[in-house]
Nucleic acid binder design. Structure first.
Lengths: 233, 233
DNA sequence: ATCGCGCATATACCCAGACATAATATCAAT
DNA sequence: ATTGATATTATGTCTGGGTATATGCGCGAT
């Protein structure tokens, strides 16, 4: 009750969570109907609905019309990973951020990427290599292919001052993305730019983004050895 | 309008998304007030509220009392990673799942873990090593420390048939978790169990879970070489 | 110029009632 | 026994009214 004596949807939500966690309502339990809960808590059905809906969104309960609301047996826990702009991650650690454009060329799309993005192999792309430093130590190596068709203005963009990631984000609001994480051994390029011996295990993140079914860019970001990505829930 | 001629909160939400994506409301735009939008769409204010609230939850817009609703400049895109039970991930690939308990012992907590979990170094834990196979090929090596205090019943659990992860999930509903991803080179154990040369880059996921501030378990899961974790949004 | 206070305002949330929809249960006809 | 129509029921959503709360802004005192 954070308002004048009324039961808030948060109170309902918290009480339900409590009953589940304390074992009053074990896994699989069918909970009372919205009407019954509303009566018990002395609030409107809409309030209970809001609380239970939120719990359903978080995967705590499962709701079905007519069947009712049930405590989830296998809570599909999902961790949220925030894909931040590199500069922000670096600055968050109170380190000094530095960016460098290493390579820039207009070229034909590599066959493997053409296949992946479903583009003809004659398609032109902008191929970029960049480095991101934290306190002048290698932080991330970025390799990127940009679909010029989808973002023609990139031809005039100055990518020396601002990184392509920040530039793209401010210009093309993408709608869908697909992300891969994996571990690889450093190849020649990586070894050179990340100042590490060839074969060193490094953390790699690949992302493909689309703007309404039109591929925009594919980027491969490789972090310095020892990098840990973390999240909590 | 999916009901009899009424404007649903989804219609409002979709239209707002459309206006943002088509550039009618560029980044940073202050959108009309809820009342104004409700008038425009011919629906109740609560309906507009629901739509905008959902967009705010997804990070598309930013809402502040008195200021209004603004199109987010730096959309903090967050990818959701589903932390599924290993068996399910394997079965999803139509592979045959097999599990093996490799090692099980009650021991004093290792100092580094005691520090990490804020437990006394005299604390007893159960230390487990397990292997998960897909079609009889190594899939994941699991190394786990369980706080016996938090889960005393684990002493009687048969962990030979069911893996500790599934057992724990069905018994202790944890409340908080912290996850780390990183890339490491295979050490002796990993090399042996994952059938790969020492030093091979492998993808590792560490997770600590708590039940109301009480540490439950720390697990380190290492995937076979070449494993890719993927997600989309 | 700067600080503190009050007012206006936009969002946050609540309520009671209504209808829509999906899924189950029931029962009759084949 | 199987199928198909029908009633029931719990959730999903909308309405239009309300109060609560945070906060930007102006105004006056320092």
């Amino acid at each position: 009750m954070h308002q004048s004596g009324k039961t808030s949807f948060q109170d309902v939500r918290d009480e339900v969570i409590h009953r589940i966690q304390s074992g009053i309502w074990p896994q699989g339990t069918l909970l009372p109907t919205e009407v019954e809960l509303a009566e018990e808590f002395g609030c409107a059905r809409a309030t209970v609905n809001r609380a239970l809906r939120e719990l359903a969104e978080n995967g705590v309960v499962d709701r079905k019309r007519k069947s009712g609301t049930r405590v989830n047996t296998a809570p599909v826990k999902q961790a949220k990973i925030e894909i931040a702009i590199v500069r922000h991650s670096v600055e968050e650690q109170n380190a000094i951020y530095r960016y460098a454009l290493v390579h820039k060329e207009i070229t034909a799309i590599p066959p493997w990427l053409a296949a992946q993005l479903d583009l003809p192999i004659t398609h032109k792309v902008m191929y970029l290599k960049c480095m991101h430093y934290a306190d002048n130590r290698p932080y991330q190596f970025e390799e990127r292919w940009v679909n010029i068709d989808a973002v023609p203005t990139i031809l005039d963009a100055d990518l020396v001052e601002t990184g392509p990631n920040e530039w793209l984000l401010s210009v093309v609001p993408f709608t869908d993305a697909q992300i891969n994480f994996c571990a690889v051994g450093a190849d020649a390029d990586l070894s050179e730019f990340l100042s590490t011996p060839t074969g060193t295990p490094v953390f790699q993140l690949e992302r493909t983004t689309w703007l309404q079914n039109k591929p925009v860019t594919f980027v491969r970001m490789t972090y310095h050895p020892g990098y840990r990505m973390s999240t909590s829930y």
